[in-house]
Structures are given as structure tokens and as C-alpha cells.
């Protein structure tokens, strides 16, 4: 019996086993359930809307806002600088460029907390790092940043800073979202192009 036949038997044996491996490990959760659970009960995964407003005012480039609502809602209005990844096709590999990166903090938001938390748990479970949720979603954003007014007589410096921050974010939000649809579409397309160009790089 020559070496080739022995080797072939070994290969076929391993191959049959591989064919029956239960799932594609690269496309499933990498974390163990208890690891994922202990991460998800921590409060460190949340950013408040005020923090997000500050990121926007400072044009902080270390974070990336991810809008998990559908494209229609995203087009109507969104937090400036967001990327739209509709939750309905969240598992599409084309989003990996945004989700699987180490440099930026990904902050998920939806109208409420729920969809953002689905997205958070799935992407954290898949082994992507740096995932956060904007607590309260757009409802909280609108209530706090867009609608809150200062009421009272004396304003403390802390309150003053807080309201100035909200006011500036509100201004940016209104200006960007009041652009005509054609300009918005151009802007989003340009953003997508940029991300796909950044794809790759040996690590």
C-alpha cells in the first residue's frame, strides 16, 4: 500500500468529518454564553444621549453611530454621522466592514432600546469588539436633546454646559436633517464608498 493511498484515506476521513461539522464557525457566536451574559448585564455598554451629543459637537472620530432602523426611517432623519444598518438584514456579511473593526466605538441606536440591544448582543456575541448602545434610543434623544428647555431662575455652570451641549447638537441635527433628500442621498453614498475603500489590510 503506497503512501498516496494512505494519505488519501486520511484526507477523505477528515473531509467527511468536516462536511458534517454542525455549522459555519466563522459565522456564529464566538463568545461563550456566560461571557456574553456578564458583558450584557454591565452598565458600561451604554452611552447617554448627552454623551452622544458631546461626541457630535466635538466631531469625535473615535466613535461610529449605527442606526438599526429601516432605510425609510433613516432617510427621514438620523443622528448626524450615522451609518444605517437595518436590523432586518443585520446578518448580511456586507456590514462586516462597519461591525468588525477595532478602532471605533460602535454605538447602536433605534427608536427605542430593544432593536439596538438585539444588534448589540448579536455583534458582541459574534466576537466584534467595542459595541455600545445609546440608552433610550431616538425617543430619549428627541426628548432630551431636541425638546428639553431650561426652566428656572439661576443656571449653574454645570447646567449651562449641559444645555449648551444639547443646543449645539440640536442645531446640527436639525440642519443636517433638513437638507433636501437628493443631498442626503449623495452624502450617504459617499460615506458607504469611503467605508468599502477602507476594507482590508493585513493584520
Amino acid at each position: 500500500m503506497n503512501a498516496r493511498i494512505k494519505f488519501s484515506i486520511l484526507l477523505i476521513g477528515v473531509g467527511i468529518m468536516m462536511a458534517f461539522l454542525p455549522f459555519n464557525t466563522a459565522r456564529s457566536f464566538q463568545l461563550k454564553p456566560d461571557e456574553l451574559l456578564s458583558k450584557s448585564v454591565s452598565d458600561d455598554i451604554y452611552f447617554s444621549v448627552d454623551q452622544v451629543a458631546r461626541f457630535i459637537n466635538n466631531e469625535d472620530t473615535t466613535f461610529q453611530l449605527i442606526d438599526v432602523r429601516d432605510a425609510e426611517q433613516f432617510k427621514a432623519f438620523n443622528i448626524p454621522g450615522s451609518v444605517n444598518i437595518p436590523f432586518n438584514d443585520f446578518s448580511d456579511p456586507k456590514w462586516e466592514v462597519y461591525l468588525n473593526q477595532k478602532g471605533l466605538k460602535n454605538i447602536y441606536y433605534g427608536n427605542d432600546d430593544r432593536t439596538a440591544c438585539y444588534a448589540w448582543t448579536i455583534s458582541t456575541g459574534m466576537g466584534y469588539g467595542n459595541n455600545f448602545v445609546m440608552k433610550g434610543g431616538l425617543n430619549e434623544w428627541y426628548k432630551t436633546v431636541m425638546l428639553s428647555q431650561f426652566e428656572g431662575e439661576n443656571i449653574t455652570p454645570r447646567e449651562n454646559a449641559l444645555f449648551e451641549n444639547r443646543f449645539n447638537a440640536r442645531k446640527t441635527f436639525t440642519q443636517i436633517n433638513s437638507l433636501p433628500d437628493s443631498l442626503k442621498t449623495h452624502y450617504f453614498n459617499a460615506k458607504h464608498l469611503q467605508a468599502s475603500k477602507l476594507d482590508g489590510g493585513c493584520e
Binding site: L36, S40, D113, T115, A116, Y118, I122
Partner: peptide, 13 residues
């Protein structure tokens, strides 16, 4: 709601 959402994903998985 966020707790239930996260737990739902974990249990579903």
C-alpha cells in the same frame, strides 16, 4: 426592555 432583548438573543442562540 433592553434586558429582555439581550436575554432573548442569548437564549435564542
Amino acid at each position: 426592555v433592553s434586558t429582555t432583548a439581550k436575554v432573548w438573543v442569548i437564549l435564542n442562540q
